[in-house]
Design a protein around this nucleic acid. Structure first.
Lengths: 196, 196
DNA sequence: TCGATTAAACGACATCTGTCGCGTACACTG
DNA sequence: CAGTGTACGCGACAGATGTCGTTTAATCGA
């Protein structure tokens, strides 16, 4: 399977478009691989040549948005003049807030689980990358666990918003306010909920 | 369907035992309704007389643990003398920490999603019940949203621990430390991450 | 103890998933 | 432009889900 073959590109593009198209008009929980393949005009068996399952197809379709989250962690490099720039983790949280509003509305109770899994991986990688690049938590919590906690907590809010009766916009705003007050950058270190 | 019929009781008990049994010895992600029914010695169609799907069966099998979480929110009533008693939300967090360690180990990447959904509902109800009983957040965040956020964040950590390479015990301990530092009770109000 | 109730077994059905082998037609290369 | 590689369509398969109608047998009341 050559990933840059024009035929394969066309097929994957059709599948991505069909997945997002159907997710927007039908209940995402009831989406089937058969339906996506039919909408894309692609044989059902062909889907398995490109993706292991429907979740992977969805992950690819949302890769653009996920990449934006990962990039958000790089918007404020640690070695840049930090005066007017916002704290990196705060930038991450803002992006997550926007994604929570957007995707928690688009995806239903089941569909949100797909996105949460994909976003969780992206967030973990992004936060850990920030820590590897020099950011350090001010507490005695082990570095990796701290990053995992942050990613898990954020995704938890997203998943929860999508699967309960809350208005996702309100809950996402609460996320932002809570973490916005609780996290800050001090002496090139990330301080989480630790009043100095 | 009489829920107290001895035959129905036996059937559900067999199904619960079989579900936990198979979850312990096989990869929970590959568990099928057919396999659980076969292990329980119950016809596959009969399962649908008691549960809408396999997730509901799992929820019932784990009901005992979930009930313990809900009960944890009642361990320290607000109208009791609050001197030596720990804050109610802190008690909740401690129970979640224990459950995270236990279930994140037992359940695999997919299996944890089943438990997270059930635990999320129980946590939301428990935290909101505490707020209805008199506890008030000190910030301007709407009450219900705040409760939803707390539940979502906690479940996010659990789900994340079970689906990544972290040691669940470490990550759960981090949860406890982080929230333990960030939350406290002050003047009968629950203060979250707000240094006075 | 007998009869009415009903949980459960049983077989069948439509649909979806994941996989396989085969033939066709499109895509790069010399 | 011819030739080789390969993505794709096609048909079929086993296994799982969710549902249905019928039959068997356990339960409980009289």
């Amino acid at each position: 399977m050559a990933p840059d073959d024009p035929r394969a590109r066309r097929t994957r593009a059709s599948l991505r478009a069909a997945a997002l198209e159907l997710a927007g008009e039908r209940d995402p929980a009831t989406l089937t691989l058969s339906a996506v393949a039919a909408r894309a005009g692609v044989n059902r068996a062909t889907v398995y040549l490109h993706y292991p399952d429907l979740d992977a197809l969805f992950a690819d379709a949302m890769e653009e948005a996920v990449a934006a989250v990962a990039q958000a962690a790089q918007l404020c490099p640690l070695d840049a003049p930090a005066e007017p720039a916002p704290p990196p983790l705060v930038t991450l949280f803002e992006h997550v807030r926007e994604h929570a509003t957007l995707y928690a509305r688009m995806l239903g109770p089941q569909g949100s689980a797909r996105f949460a899994a994909r976003l969780r991986a992206a967030l973990t990688e992004a936060v850990q990358e920030r820590f590897r690049a020099g950011a350090r938590p001010a507490s005695d919590v082990p570095l990796d666990v701290h990053a995992a906690f942050l990613a898990g907590a954020l995704v938890g809010v997203i998943a929860h918003c999508a699967s309960c009766d809350e208005d996702p916009a309100d809950a996402a705003a609460a996320t932002w306010r809570l973490f916005g007050d609780g996290g800050r950058v001090e002496n090139e270190a990330v301080v989480i909920n630790k009043p100095s």
